[in-house]
Design a protein around this nucleic acid. Structure first.
Lengths: 146, 146
DNA sequence: TTATTGTATATCTAATTAATATATAATTAA
DNA sequence: TTAATTATATATTAATTAGATATACAATAA
C-alpha cells in the first residue's frame, strides 16, 4: 500500500519545476542535486510525464525541461495517477476480468471507495499549493532556528 | 500503491468468518474453499489477526477459529491497518527520521492527508456492513440471471 | 565542431510478495 | 488410548517489482 519512490520522486520533480517555473529550461542535474535523487533515475521518471505532455524538453547546452502548464493547473492527483498507472488500490476495480469473483465481490467495492477518497484529496492539491506550502514550511523552520 | 493480497485475503477471511459468526469454530479449510485461497497462505495471514485478539482458535477435531467480537464492532480500517502494518502511504509520516528532509518536506504532508482520507473511509465500514452488502450483491446477481 | 544536455535501452541487485512444504503440538471422538 | 483432525511454527522457494545504474546514441547552442 506504500507509494512507490517513482511517484514520490516524480511529485518532487514536478514541484521543483514548479518552483523554478519562470526560469526557462531546468536541467535534471540541478533537480537531482536539489532533491537528492540520482539523475539517471529522474531520467526514467520523467518519461511518462513527457509522454503525457506535462513537460517539454530542449536538447543541447542550456537545454532542459519546462512545464507546459502553470503550476496552478496541475494537481498532485494527475501526477500520481500517471506514475502509479491508475488511481486504484486493486487491479479488479479497473479491470474486473482479472478476477472471476468481481461481480459479486463486496470487498472490491470498498477498495474502490477508499481509492476514490484518497484521490479526491489529491485532486484538491495543485503544484502551486505545494510551492506555497514549501515557503511556509521554510519560514517556519527559520523561525524555529532563530 | 496497490493493496497486498495479504490485506485483501485477510479482509475476505474476516468477512467469511463474519458470515458464519453464529456457527461456532470455522475451519481454515472451509474458508479456503469458499474464498479460493490456499489454506497455507491463510494460516500465515491469520497470525497477526490472532495476535491482535480479533480471532481465537481451538485445536483438535471440530476445532477452528472464532471472531472475538461481533461483526458490527470490527471495521475494515482496523484489519487493513494491521495487515499492512500501518495506515500510511509513506514511511516518513509515521517515522520522520527515515528521511532527513522530513521537517521541511511539503509532499510528506499531502501523503499524510491522502492516507487519512483513505482510512477515514475504511473506518466507516464494518464487517457487518460487508455481510449485508454481500447479500445485496448476491440477490442482485440472481435477479440478473432470472 | 565540441561540449553539453536529453533519449533510449539494457542490465543488475535487492527486497518483497505470494505461496508452498515440512514437521510438530494439541485435542476430541471412537 | 489411539487415530484422526485441526491448529502452530518455521523454513524454503519462486516470481515479481522496486530501485537503481550503465552504456550508447542523438540533438543543438555556443
Amino acid at each position: 500500500m506504500k507509494l512507490s519512490t517513482r511517484s514520490r520522486y516524480g511529485t518532487r520533480l514536478m514541484l521543483d519545476m514548479a518552483q523554478h517555473y519562470q526560469n526557462g529550461p531546468i536541467q535534471l542535474g540541478d533537480i537531482a542535486k536539489r532533491q537528492d535523487v540520482s539523475v539517471k533515475y529522474l531520467e526514467q521518471i520523467i518519461i511518462p510525464l513527457k509522454k503525457a505532455h506535462y513537460i517539454e524538453s530542449v536538447r543541447g547546452p542550456k537545454g532542459g525541461h519546462i512545464l507546459t502548464k502553470p503550476p496552478e493547473e496541475i494537481t498532485v492527483a494527475e501526477i500520481v495517477a500517471l506514475l502509479e498507472e491508475g488511481t486504484s488500490l486493486v487491479e479488479c476495480t479497473e479491470h474486473a476480468e482479472v478476477c472471476s469473483r468481481s461481480h459479486t465481490c463486496p470487498t472490491r467495492l470498498i477498495w474502490k471507495e477508499a481509492s476514490e477518497a484518497m484521490f479526491d484529496k489529491l485532486k484538491s492539491i495543485t503544484l502551486a499549493d505545494l510551492v506555497q506550502k514549501t515557503k511556509a514550511l521554510e519560514s517556519e523552520e527559520l523561525a524555529h532556528v532563530l
